[in-house]
């Protein structure tokens, strides 16, 4: 019986990965069937898409676009995650501000911010700053909302315990506030990452001559389906990889609490 118990964890991990790859294989099969149904012109096959992507990755002109997108993403994430965390924490600590701000934030979250792209262009002009602004306005709101709730929902008894133990504000922050709020904050950062990336790509599509988003809108204009598919695949792989890492962290933190 103990031998069975010892085998279990390894098996469970193995099975999870097998399941994941089975799912991916299933998606590839569906993709291939769609390709057969829609035809070569409409939807390139998985094999050709991968081949096209490898071809693109081998081209010297391609990499500056990738670098441009990553740079814009980096700046946007910096603004969205740090700005959102700071704003959300303040609103979470100051109860009245939080109550006033929350519905406004939720309303802003729901706005189709893509409508604002002409405004962003008129303010920032074409280029990096417009993309960063577009990425940041998409990402900062969910990060703020999650941080607000994370801080506001810390159980009062934890804070009382900190006071009973006469912790200094700094100690209380480090040993009580941060660990208690961390799981929700990470969830917010995870969603913030996905939306920031979306925002940056949107910004590149409409407000830039550089970056992967620009390449996509260009390909759309030329109706170059293989390039569209290859870039979409690249972005999906990148997004899934980063999100999975954040999701694993998220799960670990939530399990603990």
């Amino acid at each position: 019986m103990s031998a069975v118990a010892l085998d279990k964890p390894a098996n469970a991990t193995l099975r999870r990965w097998t399941d994941f790859f089975l799912l991916i294989a299933g998606l590839v099969v569906v993709w291939y069937l769609l390709h057969l149904w829609a035809g070569e012109v409409a939807l390139t096959s998985p094999y050709e898409t991968v081949a096209k992507l490898i071809d693109l990755l081998g081209q010297a002109w391609f990499w500056p676009h990738v670098g441009e997108t990553l740079l814009a993403l980096f700046y946007s994430l910096l603004i969205a995650s740090i700005g959102g965390l700071g704003l959300g924490t303040l609103l979470g600590i100051h109860r009245l501000s939080g109550q006033v701000a929350e519905p406004i934030l939720v309303a802003l979250y729901a706005l189709p911010k893509i409508t604002l792209y002409p405004l962003i262009l008129l303010i920032f002009g074409l280029g990096l700053s417009a993309k960063v602004a577009f990425g940041a306005i998409h990402g900062i709101i969910p990060v703020t909302i999650f941080a607000l709730n994370a801080v506001r929902n810390i159980k009062p008894v934890y804070l009382k315990t900190a006071r009973v133990m006469r912790l200094t504000p700094l100690q209380a922050m480090r040993t009580v506030w941060v660990p208690a709020a961390l799981p929700e904050i990470v969830s917010g950062q995870r969603i913030g990452f996905a939306l920031t990336l979306l925002g940056v790509l949107l910004g590149e599509m409409f407000a830039s001559q550089q970056g992967l988003g620009f390449l996509i809108i260009n390909a759309i204009g030329l109706n170059d389906v293989p390039v569209i598919m290859a870039l979409a695949l690249l972005l999906a792989l990148f997004a899934v990889a980063v999100s999975s890492a954040l999701l694993a962290l998220d799960r670990k933190l939530h399990q603990r609490s």
Binding site: M1, S2, V4, A5, K8, P9, A12
Partner: peptide
């Protein structure tokens, strides 16, 4: 029955 690392 056993679940994950937990014995039955």
């Amino acid at each position: 029955p056993a679940v994950g690392e937990q014995p039955p």
